[in-house]
Amino acid sequence: MSKTYYTEDHEWIRVEGETATVGITNYAQEQLGDLVFVELPEIGRSIAKGEETVVVESVKAASDVYAPVSGEITDVNEALAGDPALVNRAAEGDGWLIRLKLSEPGQLDELMDQAAYQAMVE
């Protein structure tokens, strides 16, 4: 049983137990355009909510992706090293960025559900 949350900075976070998978939304990838490079953090790093964690780069610009919640990075999407455009093709699926072990699950209550996020971007 998983539940997906969204942030105002256009990240999604899918939570299963204590583990969360994080990516950028389809809306975000459309705005960014074709990605040519994704800079991923080191596994094991502890990050605080709001910290710059991933950098996604298009032809024209580099954009920060912020940690939607605090936790420890347990995995990164290695497939993006050779295929950053996977984020464009499947932003909310195979194009995920990082996995986290949540350190403050209560932070999830501050995030949006899908309906609220859709309302925000429309």
Partner: peptide
Amino acid sequence: MPEGNRVD
């Protein structure tokens, strides 16, 4: 984060 959301 997306460029389009920056307020210029």
